[in-house]
């Protein structure tokens, strides 16, 4: 335990803001259990003031994963989303009196999760420039959907067989069976990345993988 600062241990032992906000205004999941790091952040955001009124996290991960998530929730709570977006991973690590270098990626993950939840909220509220959902953009989003078994993007894993964007309807064919252990997890992740886009009316996911004999 000598590697960790007192503050890391303190947040690991008593993590702040644990859980999931049931009626969250924004949510993001980053990482994967295959990598040993996974983080889910849910937010309540005041529409008028943009203040983060509540934030909670869940983590599958090591001590520094839990501690960085905990500190990020403390740093973001009560701030506006514009302020929260500017929190850097180094700042988060400093706030914990440092992290061992090999664990720095945990701080990156925590910051990324917060940013993508905020980003999602901004898109939904039309605060970021309304760019139409092109096949290019869909592909970009899908590159951040990971196969939890490997921690590798479903695009790189060639699980994405085909996709199409037409009249606000995104259709995605995956090389997985509906019974696959992670079918529901992956489909949840895809919905999380695409459903909120302003011009997307529906996301249809087809599991067209052949069952193993």
């Amino acid at each position: 335990m000598a590697l960790y600062s007192k503050k890391v241990i303190e947040h690991f032992k008593h993590p702040r803001n644990v859980g999931e906000i049931a009626d969250a205004d924004a949510a993001a999941m980053e990482g994967s259990p295959a990598c040993g790091d996974m983080l889910k952040i849910t937010l309540k955001i005041d529409e008028k003031t943009h203040v983060i009124t509540d934030i909670k996290f869940e983590s599958f991960g090591c001590a520094s994963n839990i501690a960085t998530a905990s500190i990020i929730t403390e740093m973001a709570k009560g701030r506006t989303i514009e302020e929260a977006e500017r929190i850097g991973w180094k700042q988060a690590a400093d706030e914990l009196d440092g992290l061992p270098p090999v664990k720095m990626h945990c701080a990156v993950l925590a910051v990324d999760a917060l940013k993508s939840a905020i980003e999602q909220w901004k898109e939904r509220h039309g605060l970021v420039e309304k760019e139409p959902t092109t096949p290019d953009k869909v592909l970009r989003k899908l590159r951040n959907v990971l196969n939890p078994l490997t921690g590798v993007s479903i695009v790189r894993m060639q699980l994405l067989l085909d996709f199409d964007v037409a009249d606000g309807i995104v259709t995605i064919d995956l090389d997985l069976t509906p019974e696959h252990k992670f079918a529901s997890h992956i489909s949840e992740e895809i919905h999380e990345k695409l459903d909120h886009l302003w011009d997307v009316k529906e996301v249809k996911i087809n599991f067209v993988g052949k069952p193993e004999v």
């Binding site: 259990p33 040993g36 599958f60 090591c62 994963n65």
Partner: peptide, 14 residues
């Protein structure tokens, strides 16, 4: 299942 070993190890150590 669903959790990570370093966290278990540290809590046991404490």
């Amino acid at each position: 299942d669903y959790i990570e070993g370093e966290s278990i190890l540290l809590h046991l150590d404490m």
